[in-house]
Amino acid sequence: METRTDYIIQVKDLVKTYNHGAVVALNHCSLDVKKGQVIAIIGPSGSGKSTMLRSLNLLEEPTSGEIYFNDVELTSKKIDLNLHRQKMGMVFQHFNLFPHKTVLENITLAPVTLKIQTEEEAKGVALQLLDRVGLLDKADEYPNMLSGGQKQRIAIVRALAMEPEVMLFDEPTSALDPEMVGEVLDVMKELAQEGMTMIVVTHEMGFAREVADEIIFMADGEIVERGMAEDIFAHPKMQRTKNFIDKVL
C-alpha cells in the first residue's frame, strides 16, 4: 500500500552490519528528505556516511529497516529496483568512469541500453550537458586522457543524463587535487540552484555551509544531529558534533 507523503526519500530505522554483526556501520538511522532539498552529510571517517548514502539506492543491502523512494519501498522484494535506480543518480569519490568507453559513450550507455532515449536523443542530451560543464571538446576522448576534475564533472553529467530525481554524492571532491575541487563544486552548486534534490557526503565544510539546506552529522553509525547549516556550525546541540566542528573548522 502506498501513502503519498511530501518526502522523496525516507529511511526508517536502518541497520547495516558487516561480518555477521561484528561491525555495526549503521545503528538504527532514520532520515527523510523533501523534494528539492540539499542535504550535506558530515562526520568523521568510518562513521557510516558512505554506507548510509549507498543504502539509499541499495548498493548496500540493509540488514534491517526500510527505505522509501517516492513512497515506494525499495527494500521490498516485489519492486524492480533497476527501474528506481534510474531516477537516483550517484557520483563516486573515484569517478568510476568506464575506461573502455569514450566520454560520450560513458554518458549515453545507460539511457540507450535502457531504451530511455534513442541513440540520437542521448547524444543530443549528452552534448548539451557536456557544454554546460564546459567539456564539449572532450566528447570523443577516453577517460584516461582527462584530469580528475574533468572526470568528476563527466561522472556528474553521466548521472544527469538519466534525468534523475535525486543526486547522491559520496565525497565527490576527496580524490581531487586541490586546484580542481572548485570546478566540481561549481557544477554542484549550479545543480542545487536549479532545484535538484541532493544528498552530499562531504568534507568541504564551506560548500556544506553555503549550499546545503540542512546538515546531518553522523558519528559511530548514528545520526547524531540534524539541523540548518548555521545552527550546526554555530550552535551545535550535541557534544560530539561540537568536537567535530571544532576540529574541522
Binding site: N57, L59, N82, L83, H84, R85, Q86, K87, M88, G89, M90, F92, H94, N96, L97, F98, L109, A110, T113, L114, A155, R158, A159, M162
Partner: peptide, 11 residues
C-alpha cells in the same frame, strides 16, 4: 566501482 557505477545508473 565499475559494477557499482553501472548498477547505480539502473543497468
Amino acid at each position: 566501482g565499475q559494477m557499482e557505477a553501472a548498477r547505480s545508473l539502473g543497468l
